[in-house]
Amino acid sequence: MSEAVRHDLLAPAGGWHRRRARLGVHLVLLAFALCYLLPLAVVVLNSFRDLGDIGRNGLLAVPRSFSLAHWSVVWNRFCVSGGCAGIAPFFFNSLAMAIPATAISTMLGALNGYILSKWRFPGSQTVFLLMTLGVFMPGQMVLLPWAITLGWLGLTNTIAGLVLIHCVQGLSFTTLFCRNYYVGIPDELIRAARIDGAGFWRIFLRIVLPLSPPILIVTVIWQFTGIWNEFLFGVTFSSGAHQPITAALIGLATTGTSVHQYNVESAAVLIAALPPLLIYLVGGRYFVRGLTQGAIK
C-alpha cells in the first residue's frame, strides 16, 4: 500500500489504526459544528421559554418552561415600528420585495449573460468588465445616488423602490454567473439554431434557457438570500409600515419598553431567518453543484 493511501484518513474500511484516525477527524468536525450551532440553539430554546424563566436563570440556561405563545404573539400582536400587528406585515413586505427582485434580476442576468457570451458585439467585453465591477462596489457608496434616484422617481419609502434597488444592485452578480455559465455552451449549437431559422429570442427560450437550471438555481438562491437578509437599503429607504423584516427587527430591539422580551425577540429572529433557510435546504444541493460547474470545466 502506498504512503498516500495509508494517510488518507477518510479512506473507506481498513484496520483499527485508520478507524481511530477517522474517529478523531469526526470529533474535531463535531466540535466545530457545535460551536456554530450553539448560538442558534440558544435562540431556538429561548423562543419557547417564559420571560420569568429567562429572568431567573439567565439567557444561557436549560429551559424550565415551554410555550408556543411567543411565536404567535410576535407574528400578529406584538407592537413594533409604530404598529401592533406583529412582524407578519414586515415578513410579507420582505416577500413582496425579495420575490420580484429575485425573479427580475435573475431573468435580466440570464439575458445579459446570453448576449455577452453568444451575441458579442464590438465592446461587449468592456461592457461585461464594467458590469462586473459592480460586484466589488460596497453598498454604502451608492446610498446617496439611490436616495436621489428614488426621490426623482417618487419611489421613496415604497416596496417598489427597494425592488428596483435590488434588481440593479444584483445585476452584476447575476450577469457574471450566467455569462460564465453560458460561455460553456458550444457556439455550434447557436450556429445550428441560426441556420435552423431560429432568432435571438427563440434560441434563448428554446435552447439556452432549457440548459440553464443549474445556474438559475444558483442565481435565485444567491439573490433571494442576499435580498432577504439585506439591511442597509431597507433601513435607509423605508420606514414605518413599508419596512422589510430586517429593518423592522431593529425596531423590535429598540422599543421603548424597559424590559427586553428575549423570548419574543428570539421567535422574531427565527421567523425572519426561515425563508432563506428553507430555500437553501431545498436548493442547496444544486447550489454547490452549480457554483463548481463552471470552475471544473
Binding site: 458550444p186 449549437l189 450556429r191 445550428a192 439554431a193 441556420i195 431559422g197 427563440r202 428554446r206 432549457p210
Partner: peptide
C-alpha cells in the same frame, strides 16, 4: 441551406424528434 457540424450540435435538451423538427417549427 442546411449544415452538419463537426460536434453535431444537437440540441441537448430536445428529443431526436424535436431536434429534427426544430427548424420547421422555427
Amino acid at each position: 441551406i442546411a449544415m452538419v457540424f463537426q460536434s453535431y450540435a444537437l440540441y441537448p435538451t430536445m428529443t431526436v424528434r424535436r431536434n429534427i423538427t426544430f427548424g420547421m417549427e422555427s
